[in-house]
Design a protein around this nucleic acid. Sequence first.
DNA 1: CGCATAGTTCGTTCCTCATCGAAGCATTCT
DNA 2: AGAATGCTTCGATGAGGAACGAACTATGCG
Lengths: 224, 224
Amino acid sequence: MREGPDIARIASLVGDPARANMLNALMGGTALTASELALEAGVSLPTASSHLSKLIEGGLLTVASQGRHRYYGLAGPQVAGMIEAITGVAEAVGPKRVRPGPRDRAMRVARVCYDHLAGEQAVAMLDRLVAKNVLVRDEQQIRLGPSAASHFAAIGIDVYTKPRRPVCRACLDWSVRRSHLAGTLGAAILDKILAEKWARREKDSRAVIFSPPGKQAFERVFLS
Amino acid sequence: MREGPDIARIASLVGDPARANMLNALMGGTALTASELALEAGVSLPTASSHLSKLIEGGLLTVASQGRHRYYGLAGPQVAGMIEAITGVAEAVGPKRVRPGPRDRAMRVARVCYDHLAGEQAVAMLDRLVAKNVLVRDEQQIRLGPSAASHFAAIGIDVYTKPRRPVCRACLDWSVRRSHLAGTLGAAILDKILAEKWARREKDSRAVIFSPPGKQAFERVFLS
DNA sequence: CGCATAGTTCGTTCCTCATCGAAGCATTCT
DNA sequence: AGAATGCTTCGATGAGGAACGAACTATGCG
């Protein structure tokens, strides 16, 4: 009978299958309408609406009205990180995974995590950036290294533009159980990958699929 | 309607208040018995047992039988990380902390934790005993120091009487987030506090309320 | 305006699951 | 052996909450 932050309240919000599906769908980073989320969750519109108000009320989602549409999105990277953490446990503990299909495989390699890149590629990238001393990490903290500004400027990313959110954050990867790069820098890198058309997003999925030349370019820039 | 790891299943396990309390109690890293967890969660033993089997079944907990005791512990650091992540969101999202009432305040200062003392007083006591080298701790382990036997004999506590249970154990304090002393020694000290009438137990509560002279005596013996 | 689309609110139904008492095992103490 | 402790299982009860249809509000379109 203890005090403290009400973790049961938060967890029970995620603990309903319909709501979990909605949150999962929103991990793609794009805000979705109530109808789209109802479809994703496999429930009727009234039911979805009820769930959505609970998620808003609980602080996990934000909503933006645009005309007669209401766009729902994750409340922030911290929420995304929590979902990733839960996904990791579910994966590890998970019921005897059937053999991973091609989509699972793609997800494992590279996927969107809210607004940045996750998966093996992302983990490898962070490792490399740290090894090159572009980024410096101690424990869960990640900071810009001395050569960070010039390094990223060379590929068209300004690390100082957005002061509000932390530039670097570590985000635990459920498929690899190691950290990848989040924060505004992580988001900027994902933007670049998509803008340069190195990769495309799989429809209705979080998977990010690199084209062969795109993968080469990515490796040249971030893994060399 | 997407596939993937069953995050709702995991989250709903954490989403019950009783189970959340248990998990929280186990975040200290020390395994606890079913009875202790029932007390922590504020439910009856059968209810706790039911919850515990669900947590085991769900892969969040492991259990180790030791004689007629069954020690429950978190299944691993990944699970602990998930709880931390959820706690972080709950903390960020739920700032509606009511101001602590008088009973909460008393609970914070001193309360019963199963069979030993918890709260600020208990944490201070353990700190002091370690500082005086009466007890020796490394990490979560606590052992008797060289002067322990004579020190406790002087106040009428024989540290060698009950061999079955561990003499010293660390127990994480939710109000202070630091360890206090459990085990037979912790129990013996609580017994002494109550026997000497330094303090009384609040009815239907875990709070332990020291009388002014009782508090002085306690401080003289354990905090000097 | 009227009609269509997007979403919320209401009321009802239904089912899961948390809860506890009582009884049943298992282990240890005497 | 018998008693005591620690814990689990069983069965009954009850409350919460997820679900949807129908009705209601709001925005956009012709």
